[in-house]
Design a protein around this nucleic acid. Structure first.
Lengths: 318, 318
DNA sequence: TTGCTGAGCGAACATTTGCCCATGCGTTAA
DNA sequence: TTAACGCATGGGCAAATGTTCGCTCAGCAA
C-alpha cells in the first residue's frame, strides 16, 4: 500500500527493483520484463541497470573457495586472529572493494540478526562505506551504532565516508555520531572538548562495543589522512621519519603497531584504539599499498579480525 | 596448508565459485574470466552457469518491492493462481485501500487498452470502488462493463459502492447495471425476477466475462453484508453456525470455499459465482479481518487472481 | 509565441552470452 | 589391438544485452 509521496524518483526506483527482481530472481529476459512492465525493451534494460547502479541488487557467492580458505587459516594462525575472511581477487582490479565489502557486510548482518542488543562501533573510510552499502535494509532497534571518530575535515566540511549514519539508517538502529572533529587544534583544546558529557558517553559506548569495525590507512602521499588534508606535506615527512607505518581511526602507529609519540597523535580526537584482546575488532583493508600498515596492525594486536582479499593476503603471508 | 580433499568435484566447484565471483561481483565479461582462469571462453561460460545451477550465486533485491514479488510468487504457487499482485503495506495503515486500488486499476487499464472487445464484470464494495477511482479517463467504446449484482439495500436505497456506473463513465464503455435487488424476498420471487429478458441477458454477459473483478467480504459483525443491513443479527448467528467464512458478490461460502446451503444463499439474486477455471476472476481484498475469507476463496478456487498487500499476503501464506 | 534545454524514448548497431555440434582425447570392453 | 563410449573442448551462430545517437516532448525563460 503506497504511502503519500508519489515522486517520479520513487516510482522509478520501484520499477527498477521490480525489473531487477524479474531479471535476477525470476530469470526473465529483458524482453519479457519489457512486456510485463509495459515498456520498451531498452527501457527495461535501463531499469535493470538502474537497479544495479543504485545497488538494489546484492549478489554474493556462497562457497568457500579452497585457496581463500587456506589463506584465511594461514592468517589466523600466523597472527592469532579470531576472525578472518579472504575473498577472491580480480587480478586486474586487486584493490576492488566490492568483494571485501560483501564479506564484511555478511558478518555485520550476522551480528545484527542477534536478538541480544549489540553495540557496534565504526570507523570511517572508503572500505567501511562500501561495506555499509552492501547491508540490506532491516529493522534492528535493539542495537546501537556508534562512531569512533568525527568526520569533520580541516575546512569544516564533512568527509563523504561517514558510515555510521548510513548504516543506522539502513538497519534501523539507534546511532551515536562522534561529536568532535577529527583533530583538535592542540592538546589543550582536546582536553576541553573531551570534557563534554556527550563525548564521555560516546567514548564509553566505544569502549564497550561488542564489535568494532575499522579501516586501515597507509602512510605516504596516498595516505587517506594526507589526501583528505589532515596531514600536511611537512608533517607527513616528520611522521614517516618517526616510523609511521599505518593508521586506524587516525591514530598513527609504527611497524610494531605501537602508537607513535608525535604532535599529531596528541591532537587526535578519536576514541582510543580498542583493546583488541577483549572485544572483536575487525579491520577491512585491501591493496598492496596497505600491506605494511595491515601487517603492523596485526603485529601490534590492534585488531583481532581481518577481512581482505587474496592478493593482499598472499602479500601479508609472504 | 592444504585442506583435506582435492577431488575434481571440489576444484570444479571452486572454479565455478571463482568464475561466478569474477562475473557477478567484479563485473568481468566471460572473455576476461576465461583469460584470468586460463580456460576457453566457453568453459568460463560453463563455470558461470554451473555456479548458478549449483546455487552458489545468491542474488537478492534490496527494496521493499522485492518482498512483495516474493510474496506474490509464493501465493501463485501455493494456490495455483494465474495472476497475483502484492503491493507494499504501510505499517501504520495496513488496511489502506489506495495501494491495491492502484494495482488493480493498472491491471484493468491494461485490459481496457486491448483493441479486442472485452466484457468486464464487476462486483461491489469499498475495494472495487477505490479501484475504479484510480482509473484514468479513457475512451473504450469497444468494451462492455457489467454488474454482477444489484446494489439496492433493504430499504430500497442504493449502496454507495456501485462500481459499474462509475467505471463505465470513466472509460467510456457501454455498461449494464444489474437489474435486480441484492436479495429477493424468497425463492419464488427470485425465480420470477430472473425470468425477465433483461436479467437473462445480463446473466449471460456475466457468464462470459473476460475478466471478473470482485471484492471479498468477511463474516461476523464487521461483515459488509451485516453493516449494510442485508443480514440481521440473528441470521448472522445462524450463518456462522453453518460455517460461513466469507462472501463474494453476496454468495456465502464456507472454509473450503463451498457455497453453503442456507436460506440466505437461496435468496441471493447476484449472478452465479463465475467458473474461475475458465475465465479470469480476480479478487481485490486487504486486511487481517478478511484473511479467512480470502483463504477460503483461494482454497475453493472461487478466484484465480488476487490483488492484496504485503501484510495480508504474509498472513495468507503464514 | 518562440526558442532553449534536458530527460526520456526507441532504432540501429556493437558486444556479450547461451547453446548446439563436430572434434579429439582418454578409457573401457571385446 | 581396436572399436566404442564418455566427455571436455572450442567453433560458430542465434539470441540477449548494452550503448550510441538522433528524435520528441514537456518545462521554462525570454
Amino acid at each position: 500500500m503506497t504511502l503519500g509521496r508519489f515522486t517520479p524518483e520513487t516510482t522509478r526506483l520501484d520499477d527498477a527493483a521490480r525489473a531487477g527482481w524479474l531479471y535476477y530472481v525470476a530469470g526473465n529476459t529483458q524482453d519479457e520484463i519489457a512486456r510485463k512492465l509495459g515498456v520498451s525493451r531498452q527501457s527495461a534494460q535501463r531499469l535493470v541497470s538502474l537497479a544495479m547502479s543504485e545497488k538494489l541488487v546484492k549478489v554474493r557467492i556462497d562457497h568457500p573457495i579452497a585457496a581463500c580458505m587456506d589463506l584465511s587459516s594461514g592468517l589466523i594462525e600466523r597472527f592469532g586472529l579470531r576472525f578472518c575472511e579472504v575473498v577472491p581477487s580480480d587480478p586486474d582490479a586487486p584493490d576492488l572493494l566490492t568483494g571485501v565489502a560483501i564479506a564484511a557486510a555478511t558478518e555485520l548482518e550476522h551480528r545484527l540478526k542477534l536478538p541480544e542488543p549489540q553495540i557496534i562501533a565504526l570507523g570511517t573510510g572508503r572500505a567501511l562505506k562500501a561495506c555499509v552499502e552492501q547491508l540490506p535494509r532491516m529493522s534492528c532497534p535493539q542495537h546501537r551504532i556508534v562512531s569512533l571518530l568525527g568526520n569533520m575535515m580541516a575546512d569544516g566540511s564533512a568527509t563523504p565516508y561517514n558510515a555510521t549514519i548510513r548504516m543506522a539508517d539502513r538497519v534501523g538502529a539507534q546511532h551515536y555520531p562522534y561529536p568532535l572533529p577529527v583533530l583538535a587544534r592542540d592538546c589543550e583544546e582536546l582536553r576541553l572538548l573531551q570534557g563534554q558529557e556527550a563525548v564521555r558517553h560516546t567514548l564509553e559506548l566505544c569502549g564497550r562495543a561488542d564489535l568494532t569495525l575499522v579501516g586501515i590507512g597507509q602512510m605516504g602521499r596516498s595516505a587517506p589522512l594526507y589526501v583528505d588534508g589532515f596531514i600536511s606535506d611537512a608533517e607527513m615527512d616528520i611522521l614517516e621519519a618517526a616510523g609511521a607505518t599505518g593508521e586506524i581511526t587516525s591514530w598513527i602507529y609504527d611497524a610494531q603497531g605501537l602508537k607513535i609519540d608525535t604532535d599529531f597523535n596528541s591532537r587526535v580526537a578519536s576514541a582510543p584504539l580498542p583493546e583488541a584482546s577483549e572485544r572483536d575488532v575487525i579491520a577491512v583493508a585491501v591493496g598492496q599499498v596497505k600491506v605494511p600498515a595491515i601487517r603492523a596492525a596485526l603485529a601490534g594486536n590492534l585488531i583481532n579480525g581481518l577481512v581482505t582479499n587474496e592478493t593482499t593476503a598472499i602479500l601479508l603471508l609472504g
